[in-house]
Write a protein that binds this DNA or RNA. Structure first.
Length: 637
RNA sequence: GCCGGCGUAGCUCAGCUGGUAGAGCAGCGGAUUCGUAAUCCGCAGGUCAGGGGUUCAAGUCCCCUCGCCGGCUCCA
């Protein structure tokens, strides 16, 4: 049976169903044609066409989409190399990931760095051979037979989960793999690759399954791009907040204190204070009220809230005080709820917006802790909004508006936004879920934010919006979350008296915009590589004397700046100028004020910025005005 | 929690196949008074993560515990 396809030049062509792309496009193929776009999908030259559609552009190594083919093939090449070197190995899966690929192997022991070298060597051989990747469609029956012979139990498991009667396999040389593709035409196209690390990974991500060895790698079409990527990894290391946190004396985590518990050092605490002040001020401006609640409460409270039922494994063990069990709080919401309940509420009061920088403690499994990003004690920039159903949409819009205001002020302009909808297990009725989901969606659209829907990923008590921010290296971090809750008002029997003089149930919104101050600070450190913008910098300026005779003048300047509220430090040590500049530079202090003979004579300042430029000689007043301007505008420099 | 790796002076790291710890930076003392990323000299600093074992002898080998790193799972 023939089907109609549109070729890249716009012409239509009738082809037999199942004709391979390389046949269909044979008049268009060039030496560097790797694949093509077909109906929004990427297909390789081996793919059989079985539906009508339109071919888009042909893919060459220049196209970013081609990396998908390349890395997928690189994963196969790696698997082939591993099978050749370690024939007992059983194959798991080997997909491409954001910056490369991996393959999971079942083997009696881990792979060593030395093994990786051997594998890389063998891969190079395979690449040199330029084995064509040949695709075959075979019946599941044949596939079962093939992978039984090959003794690949994991592949057999996969076959059973593929819909339809046939599966595709790709061969290269003697190597066969169950694979949907797409792939490069031959292994020779894997021009530049590197194996990066080995780690244990459960089969299918389930800790009840056996652990396989996952080898990570990356691949590019040329050496330069590979080098650039490796350099980026280095850069990420250089920006690592754990390293900068130590170097800049921002925070530390001490073994004697315990894992996942943060000590904020003076400079870090100062940055935190600036963030907190800004946060509180802005919340008050926007109709929030501040509340403050304790760190522990009777465990009973968590029974009512339901946390003991669904959150117990993340809570610290209870403690007994005067025969009553108390609990370190993992959430702030029950406290805010009890404030709500402290008296009768009228519909006229709603919406009520209560915010708190509330420190919570959650038991995180030891293996997941990571610097400031994943800790056991952290401060949420939390708030709970109690509102009527008809206010929900506007309140969510306001939350989003505030989120974007904060995030963009801190320098994050790109987001990944997810709207999570009703899961299988849920509370509340369907109608209200739909209403809430609609409200979330509408708010996102009104705010002009692009989002993806995560179907069924909502929490059981209500739908939510999660926002991830993109840092300067293109990595995403989950910070903001806005969650609608139909459950907890019910559990605590929250009511308000409506216009009709009847009791009604308010809806609650939980929201954290920065997420946790710890994580947000970590992201900030990495985003700015420790060089905080002037408004956030713990030290905004340092005064550096050239020689001792300049100290009296420098002292006067110091007092003036300090008096003007500038965070300034003196460096009047008897050291060479270059030495003191180097230290200030390493501390990433935005402005270095150099005081020598010239400045003394002119009663003016020479300013060196941390970018290495010298500003023209300026008066103290001008410098103060400059900093004040940058602080109030919260500029990014 | 699971898997692998790691844990030597405040920091970064040497210390080969077991023979009683070493460098640079930081710190302290002194000299130097100097113009844009490291002035010179000297001094001090370590129950080699903690505990147990093997051995004539352990930083080095074995076991346990703690912590860190990279993943898996989970999440602000």
């Amino acid at each position: 049976m023939d089907i109609k396809v549109v070729l890249p030049d716009g012409a239509e062509k009738l082809i037999g169903k199942g004709t391979k792309v390389k046949e269909v496009l044979k008049d268009f193929l060039k030496k560097d044609t790797l694949g093509a776009r077909f109906n929004e999908k990427i297909v390789d030259l081996e793919t059989p066409i079985s539906e009508e559609g339109t071919f888009g552009k042909l893919l060459t190594p220049e196209d970013p989409e081609s990396l998908e083919l390349l890395r997928h093939t690189a994963a196969h090449v790696m698997a082939q190399a591993v099978k050749e070197l370690f024939p007992e190995v059983k194959l798991g899966i080997g997909p491409t990931i954001e910056n490369g690929f991996y393959y999971d192997f079942d083997y009696e022991r881990s792979f060593t760095p030395d093994d990786l070298k051997q594998i890389e060597k063998r891969m190079k051989k395979i690449i040199k051979k330029r084995y064509p990747l040949v695709r075959e469609e075979i019946s599941k029956e044949e596939a079962r037979k093939l992978f039984t012979e090959l003794n690949e139990p994991y592949k057999l498991e996969l076959i059973e989960e593929i819909p339809g009667d046939t599966v595709s396999i790709y061969r290269q040389g003697d190597f066969v793999d169950l694979c949907a593709g797409p792939h490069l035409p031959h292994t020779g196209w894997v021009k530049a690759f590197k194996l990066l690390s080995v780690a244990g990974a459960y089969w299918r991500g389930d800790e009840n399954n056996p652990m396989l060895w996952r080898i990570y790698g990356t691949a590019f079409f040329n050496r330069e791009e590979l080098e650039a990527y490796l350099k980026k990894l280095e850069e990420a290391k250089r920006r690592d907040h754990r390293r900068l946190g130590k170097e800049l004396e921002l925070f530390s985590i001490e073994e004697e204190v315990g894992p996942g518990l943060i000590l904020w050092h003076p400079k870090g605490a100062l940055v935190r204070k600036i963030i907190e002040d800004f946060w509180k001020e802005e919340h008050l401006k926007r109709g929030y009220e501040l509340v403050v609640t304790p760190h522990i409460a009777r465990r009973h409270l968590w029974q009512i809230s339901g946390h003991l039922d669904f959150y117990a494994e993340n809570m610290f063990a209870p403690m007994k005080i005067d025969e009553v069990e108390y609990q370190l709080k993992p959430m702030n919401c029950p406290f805010h709820i009890l404030i709500y309940k402290s008296r009768r509420r009228s519909y006229r009061e709603l919406p009520i917006r209560w915010c708190e920088l509330g420190t919570v403690y959650r038991y995180e499994r030891s293996g997941v802790l990571h610097g400031l990003m994943r800790v056991r004690g952290f401060t949420q920039d939390d708030a709970h909004i109690f509102c009527r159903e008809d206010q929900l949409e506007e309140e969510i819009f306001k939350c989003l508006d505030l989120t974007v205001y904060f995030l963009s002020t801190f320098g994050f302009k790109e987001y990944q936004i997810f709207l999570s909808t009703r899961p299988e297990k849920y509370v509340g009725d369907e109608a209200i879920w739909e209403k809430a989901e609609g409200a979330l969606r509408k708010a996102l659209e009104d705010k002009g934010l692009a989002y993806e829907i995560d179907p069924g990923e909502g929490v059981f008590y209500g739908p939510k919006i999660d926002i991830k921010i993109k840092d300067i290296l293109g990595r995403f971090w989950q910070c903001s979350t806005i969650q609608v809750d139909f459950n907890i008002p019910e559990r605590f029997n929250l009511t308000y008296i409506g216009e009709d003089n009847q009791r009604h149930r308010p809806i609650m919104i939980h929201r954290a915009l920065l997420g946790s101050l710890e994580r947000f600070f970590g992201v900030l450190i990495e985003h700015y590589a420790g060089a905080f913008p002037v408004w956030l910098a713990p030290v905004q300026a340092i005064i550096i004397t050239v020689a001792d005779r300049h100290i009296p003048f420098a002292e006067r300047i110091f007092e003036r700046l300090k008096g003007a509220g500038i965070r300034v430090k003196p460096d009047f040590r008897n050291e060479k100028l270059g030495f003191k500049i180097r230290e200030a530079q390493l501390q990433k202090i935005p402005y270095m004020i150099i005081i020598g003979d010239k400045e003394l004579e002119n009663e003016a300042l020479t300013i060196r910025t941390r970018k290495g430029e010298n500003l023209p000689l300026m008066s103290v007043e001008d410098f103060i005005a400059r900093i004040e301007e940058e602080v109030s505008a919260k500029t990014f420099n």
